[in-house]
């Protein structure tokens, strides 16, 4: 049997490479009984189509940035609560608690959760230096989700909605002056051509999740399922390590490109923590009991 696996990001992106290794692992592990063919760069289904496509069996397996779907269920955005975690290790602790819950939500959506890999931590990109929230006032900020729009509102920035494909053009033409994203995004898009500053604030670490259509999963033999689980565990570990490695690599790349890359000032960090607390409360109000259980358990463990 052959399964097509749509993926949203470029073939050279580490997520896509980890996905390709996973696909090979399964194909080899099952002796070719189940062959997984990856389709990176959204060449089969594009990012915003992938979840629906796998849910309804148009593809049997796929990878998607989970938090893109938090309009459907706030739990999909648990990895994107600003300033709740501030490092890979803290994020992994959060995900140990949240992962199974998100898996249940995916299950309700006819999806079997396999594994997920975090993106490098999100930081602020600015055209001009910023030392405090007051400096952010009126700056045109790229927002692409409810959470990033709210973040702009709370910091007094002006949210402008810019699609991923238009990021470079928006900075080049001054339609936007800042964004929040990982070092990887800025490195991939060479934003140093337009922006001068990257502040490491480790706001959150969004995850790409790989999931299987539930009916397709249930149709697999136990041996195949075991191979898939082994390969998923390997991919998860490989992905985490590569995400960590890639973080430093991209930050160095931004510096080489001519950007100032530094930790945010203490003032800024304190102010952002306050905003983060507000947004965590707002998320909790939406996510209800299930969300509260995750955040409480996480805080209790710290």
């Amino acid at each position: 049997e052959k399964w097509d696996m749509p993926m949203a990001y470029a073939a050279s992106n580490f997520h896509s490479e980890v996905g390709a290794n996973f696909a090979k692992c399964v194909t080899d592990g099952t002796g070719g009984d189940l062959e997984i063919v990856t389709h990176p760069s959204g060449s089969l289904f594009s990012g915003n189509e992938i979840k629906r496509a796998v849910q309804t069996g148009q593809a049997n397996i796929g990878e998607r940035l989970l938090s893109a779907h938090q309009n459907e269920n706030p739990l999909y955005g648990v990895d994107s609560i600003p300033f709740l975690v501030s490092s890979f290790d803290e994020h992994e602790k959060l995900w140990e608690i949240a992962g199974p819950k998100v898996g249940e939500v995916l299950h309700e959506d006819n999806l079997h959760y396999l594994y997920s890999v975090p993106w490098p931590p999100q930081g602020f990109y600015f055209r001009d230096p910023v030392q405090s929230v007051a400096d952010m006032k009126g700056v045109k900020f790229r927002s692409y989700s409810t959470a990033t729009a709210r973040l702009a509102e709370l910091t007094g920035m002006l949210p402008v909605q810019i699609e991923a494909a238009e990021i470079s053009q928006a900075f080049a033409t001054g339609v936007a002056d800042s964004m929040i994203s990982s070092g990887a995004t800025g490195y991939d898009r060479k934003v140093w051509e337009h922006l001068g500053y990257f502040y490491e604030v480790d706001a959150w670490l969004p995850r790409n999740a790989v999931f299987v259509n539930l009916d397709a999963w249930n149709g697999l033999s136990d041996e195949t399922k075991a191979v898939m689980n082994d390969c998923a565990a390997k991919a998860k570990a490989e992905g985490l390590q590569r995400s960590k490695d890639y973080t430093q690599f991209t930050l160095d790349g931004l510096k080489e490109g001519g950007m100032t890359v530094e930790r945010a000032s203490d003032t800024l960090v304190e102010e952002l923590k306050v905003i983060g607390a507000t947004m965590t409360d707002e998320w909790l109000a939406e996510a209800g009991e299930a969300g509260k259980a995750i955040v409480d358990a996480y805080k209790a463990g710290n």
């Binding site: 470029a10 050279s12 992106n13 760069s41 991923a164 470079s168 053009q169 080049a172 898009r189 060479k190």
Partner: peptide, 10 residues
């Protein structure tokens, strides 16, 4: 540019 991660301005 998006597919190969290259600068669109360039």
């Amino acid at each position: 540019g998006v597919t190969i991660n290259e600068s669109i301005t360039k």
